[in-house]
Amino acid sequence: MTQTLPREWAHRAPAQRAILWLGWFALVALFVWCWQIMSQDTIWAFVWDAPDQALDIGGRMMPPKWGYLPQLMKPLWDTLNIATLGTIGGVIIAIPVAFLAARNTTPSTTFLRPIALFIIVTSRSINSLIWALLLVAIIGPGLLAGILAIALRSIGFVGKLLYEAIEETDARQIEAITATGAGPAQVLTYGIVPQILPAFWSISVFRWDINIRESAILGLVGAGGLGLKMNASLAILAWDQVVVILLLILATVVLSEWVSAQVRKAII
């Protein structure tokens, strides 16, 4: 038990410390390098000019043009519809995808599961605005493009969370239903669905909340709603209208967040 105590106390072993320092050093070097590449084309005169620009824009925003508000009611209604209908559409497609992607419910792990996972990843990696950009180019501007964009983005989000919920179900409850001689569809509706229903509702409402935010700006690329008005106001540099739109979006987002929190509380 008699050990010679080390002369100095150190937080970490020397090798470990070296690796840690090397890691930090690499990060700093990488940062500097990236910074240089990124800013090589930056026109610094514009950057130094920015505070003046900000003051200028700020000045033009005041006073907000409140008279613009009534004209925004129809686009607001459109925005809500894009979010709601898009969420419903996305959820309807996400349900079968989730069941195909979950290890314990997929009919084939070698063929269908990878396809379902690929659908989820694709939908998740592409922002709804990019979906909207594509859809506006393909089927033309309007609400439909917005709804489809929101739906396509929601598939991945809802699909991923839902299939994780399916995989986390209690296997014993499913086993018990199987043991009664129930068919596959009955095992699904009695053994699995009741277990994932609360998760399903809370995921859907959560996504609806996110979609309200996203649908507000989809109009910037022509997919309808408040964003269209914003685009139009920006084009004519009507900053006093832009600020009204922004405040309206903010109010809607806060309200939808509250609604979604209330609904989720009621479910759980």
Partner: peptide
Amino acid sequence: RRRIGMIFQEYALVE
């Protein structure tokens, strides 16, 4: 399987 009833550890009811 309908002819065989099963009772489980920790009940395994659909909660």
